[in-house]
Design a binder for these strands. Structure first.
Lengths: 239, 239
DNA sequence: TGATCGGGTTGATCTCAATCAAGGACAACA
DNA sequence: TGTTGTCCTTGATTGAGATCAACCCGATCA
């Protein structure tokens, strides 16, 4: 496995001016606690395509995404794949109470994470209601996102799916201060297809259609929303 | 709204020999706390079809299901519907951190719930790590279920969807001690369709096919799994 | 310079589930 | 007893997206 642990010296510096701290689990902690938690963590890096953890394996760690994007997915025995989400900086991976990983996670491009042993994190959190409440909050937000995605998978057309995906991605990026004219899409067409319950061909055709209709413009570096109201209408299911 | 609040006298009796207590959040509480929490709750009853709360409304209460089944669903503006789940006794409804209801909930048959004001529940939970951890656990379990459902919606055939649904329903019922030869399905065909991303006709046809193939047998009162291994194989995606 | 490869696009055809349409079973009720 | 309404089933047809197939483009490399 392509995993490299960064040196001890890097640890605190990373935590100190961590760009993800505002939205990560750490937001619930004061300075002292932050330092204490940093002692329990190690920073790990994964190169593009590397698997951080695999579905059904015993989960021994929690992770907090520091930089990069991950795809989180479940596989069926015949290798059909459903990407249940993409993780961005600030996202917390792992759930107390479930002994095994519920999905696999791998890096899209280079990724760095804070890794905590489940036990030590649990001990640390045990009597810190503020941190526990923060975990509930993050879990709730994740659950809301999952439910919204069920609507997409169960009840939307291909065009609506792509539009929803783009609007949702834009919102997530701007939520972590990465908004901008041109929106990077680090994942491949196949990832998008497996996220939206489509095939790669349908994704490609739908991008082409949206471009032909003047809703978006695609570049190697990402996508620009030309007709945001139209995209938002499609995303909302008005049409 | 068809809502009736049960008398004060009923309150404690219900809590005392509550059939859902073992799997509800209350499982995290000791006797004293349980009594204290009971003070904050009121028991409410909804008749079949009544709406407990509606999507996008301000959430002022949390609920814990005491008896009955609810459908939890999201609507698109043009009235397409996705049922994101069914709630059973022990399920907790509502999430701290989100001001509005993320979905609507209504009763399938008669339902009774424990209702808590969000504020008083939050105050009660504030410094009870055990309760907070229990909430994380329940949220995590719910999230895992949501992700499994995404696989179903995005990557499974109609036949696999129905088989998965039946197996999942069986497991949930047995998880709350309601397992049995004949499995009641309180929801209508349309509910199943809107849960699985199908139409009512496809659900009906697929039930017929599974019955023709000797996998299930349907009765007015529910369904019997005749060929469980076959149903489980379909459910797992092996076929 | 050409060969190879991964990722993406586009066209032709097929298929599974949606849609359209009709009718059956059963309960509630006048 | 017939009427109405709800829920479910079944058949015929359609259509959105899957599948099959070909090709494009840029990067890498011999």
């Amino acid at each position: 496995m392509k995993i490299s642990v960064l040196g001890e010296g890097t640890r605190c510096r990373l935590c100190h001016d961590c760009t993800a701290r505002g939205f990560a689990i750490c937001a619930a902690l004061d300075k002292t606690e932050l330092r204490e938690l940093a002692q329990l963590s190690r920073h790990v890096r994964f190169e593009s395509g590397a698997t951080v953890f695999a579905q059904a394996n015993i989960a021994t760690s929690f992770f907090s995404v520091h930089a990069g994007t991950l795809r989180l997915y479940k596989l069926l025995p015949d290798s059909r794949r459903q990407i249940v989400g993409f993780a961005l900086p600030g996202d917390f991976l792992g759930l107390p109470g479930l002994p095994r990983h519920e999905f696999s996670a791998d890096a899209i491009g280079r990724v760095t994470l804070c890794q905590f042993s489940k036990e030590s994190f649990a001990t640390f959190a045990e009597n810190r209601p503020q941190l526990l409440r923060r975990m509930i909050e993050l879990a709730g937000r994740e659950l809301a996102r999952a439910q919204e995605h069920m609507v997409l998978l169960g009840r939307r057309s291909a065009e609506e799916k792509i539009a929803s995906f783009l609007i949702g991605w834009r919102d997530r990026l701007s939520g972590i201060g990465r908004g901008g004219e041109i929106m990077p899409l680090p994942m491949k067409r196949l990832d998008i297809a497996d996220h939206l319950g489509l095939t790669i061909e349908t994704v490609s055709r739908t991008f082409s259609k949206l471009e032909r209709d003047g809703v978006i413009q695609t570049f190697a570096s990402g996508v620009v929303l030309l007709d945001t109201p139209r995209a938002e209408a499609l995303s909302a299911g008005i049409s």
